[in-house]
Design a binder for these strands. Structure first.
Length: 291
DNA sequence: CGTTACACCTGAGGGC
DNA sequence: TGCCCTCAGGTGTAAC
């Protein structure tokens, strides 16, 4: 699901509904591995807290609370953060592409996949965290503490530089695609943007990481930052599950060059895009353009 | 270090 | 219609 651009799009839309508000009620589904902090404790820790800030680290969202503690959220593959407004309802309740039924309802009715609901002390909307596959995560972090999930992260992928990549790839025989997915290198890179940035750089995903030249590392990072930046501008990629918090589709799925385009002609040379599996992940590239 | 497999879940879509 | 299979923007672990 969401990679850096989708998480950032989510952060920007949902921040105004979180920051500055005081939590009055926390509603959850039953305990599961989704809750790294158990529901009961979560309710106790969050109730009465005001959210001071919402930041992003790679694919994680971090809500900083007024007592110095924070709430860490990960959207996993199918996680969605949204408010209960009508537009959210549209794509969350209806099959993609189905006709809009404006009279249907004006708030989202929480279903069995809505694992966390926050209510606040003002007249604004409630905020919901829904996740069909439950690969998402919720963790409360005490004031002054950190969590290995965060401390393991490399620099944010939006600040990726060839210098860092060159240094991090020396001595690594692993294929460069799999290395890009390592959150300890550049936090936030996922399957779509790994493939897209490799295409931009003309680098074949199977290449051994330590065989990349400095110039190739530079090019790859430039491509990566461009792809991520452009995707954020368009609201992310809506390919299978992801929709923006307001219920609308992102726009980047229309600009991707290789991801999920197996057998389609390369936009640059016409060669059929190839799909292989690397590190158990679907990988797409142009056999002609990517050396 | 590296690769592979598997585990955690649910739902959509294809083939028969 | 149902059944069985494969696939999906992620992450973590264990075995070799």
């Amino acid at each position: 699901m969401p990679e850096l651009p989708e998480v950032e799009t989510t952060r920007r839309s949902i921040a105004p509904h979180l920051v500055g508000r005081r939590i009055t009620q926390v509603t959850t589904t039953r305990a599961s591995y989704f809750f790294l902090t158990p529901p009961r404790e979560l309710e106790q820790r969050l109730t009465g807290r005001r959210i001071a800030q919402l930041t992003r680290r790679g694919k994680y969202l971090l809500a900083e609370l007024d007592d110095g503690s924070s709430l860490l959220l990960h959207l996993g593959m199918t996680g969605q953060l949204f408010t209960a407004s009508a537009r959210s309802v549209r794509l969350l309740n209806a099959t993609r592409g189905a006709a809009l039924q404006p009279e249907a309802q004006d708030t989202f009715a929480p279903d069995l996949h809505t694992h966390l609901i926050l209510d606040f002390d003002d007249a604004g909307e409630r905020v919901l965290f829904r996740d069909v596959r439950k690969f998402g995560k919720v963790l409360w972090i005490p004031a002054g503490k950190s969590d290995p999930r965060l401390s393991k992260l490399g620099v944010d992928a939006l600040t990726a530089s060839g210098d860092v990549l060159f240094e991090r790839t020396r001595g690594r025989k692993i294929n460069v695609k799999t290395l890009l997915l390592d959150q300890g290198v550049f936090a936030g890179v996922g399957n779509i943007y790994a493939d897209e940035s490799l295409f931009r750089a003309g680098v074949r995903p199977t290449r051994a990481a330590n065989k990349l030249s400095k110039k190739e590392c530079d090019k790859l990072c430039v491509g990566l930052v461009q792809v991520l930046t452009r995707s954020i501008e368009t609201g992310g990629s809506s390919i299978s599950d992801y929709v923006r918090p307001d219920g609308s589709d992102g726009g980047y799925q229309n600009e991707r060059k290789v991801y999920a385009r197996e057998h389609e002609p390369c936009s640059a040379c016409g060669t059929a895009i190839k799909r292989i599996v690397l590190g158990a992940r679907s990988t797409h590239y142009c056999p002609h353009c990517q050396k």
